[in-house]
């Protein structure tokens, strides 16, 4: 509203100052609005929703295969057993924090670092792992698989 008042007063001496003021006000306004506009645009990465992390579609995963996913800052592993059952665990080996993998031929979870083995219930069955893998809960809605801690 300050500007409105200025427009009414017709004094050419002031024009320069007014231009500077007007210009820099708009510049500042855009400096304020620029981050806000960028902020409003949702980022590509999936929004955090740890309580219900959508990790895969049932059609993506065949029986006897696995898929890695990210939960928080740590890797997780989703396994579909030969019987078609879904299981999800933290993929962090309890021995030295390596990332474990599913071994189809032996039908178990395996850590390449020290040959640690876990069965498909996450229980450590051989090798150095001192504790079982942390299991996650799985819910399947239609054809989408959700994982929660």
């Amino acid at each position: 509203m300050a500007e409105d008042n200025f427009f009414q007063e017709k004094q050419t001496r002031r024009d320069f100052l007014n231009y500077i003021l007007g210009f820099s006000f708009f510049a500042l306004l855009s400096a304020v609005l620029y981050p806000i506009f960028l902020y409003l645009k949702p980022p590509k990465a999936q929004e955090v929703d740890v309580s219900n992390l959508k990790i895969a579609k049932t059609t993506e995963i065949e029986n006897g295969s696995s898929k890695m996913f990210k939960i928080g800052n740590k890797p997780g592993i989703l396994i579909r057993t030969n019987e078609g059952e879904f299981k999800a665990f933290s993929a962090v080996c309890t021995h030295l924090d390596c990332t474990v993998q599913y071994k189809k031929d032996e039908n178990l979870i395996w850590c390449a670092c020290h040959n640690g083995r876990y069965d498909l219930n996450g229980k450590n069955i051989s090798g150095p792992p001192p504790a079982p893998l942390t299991p996650y809960n799985i819910t399947v809605q239609k054809d989408e698989i959700f994982v929660s801690k």
Binding site: K74, L96, D97, T99, H114
Partner: peptide
Amino acid sequence: SDAKFDSNDIKKVLITTRN
């Protein structure tokens, strides 16, 4: 945190390489 997540695997690589 993303970079840290990716570097989780460095440990694994070091261990397997030493093996």
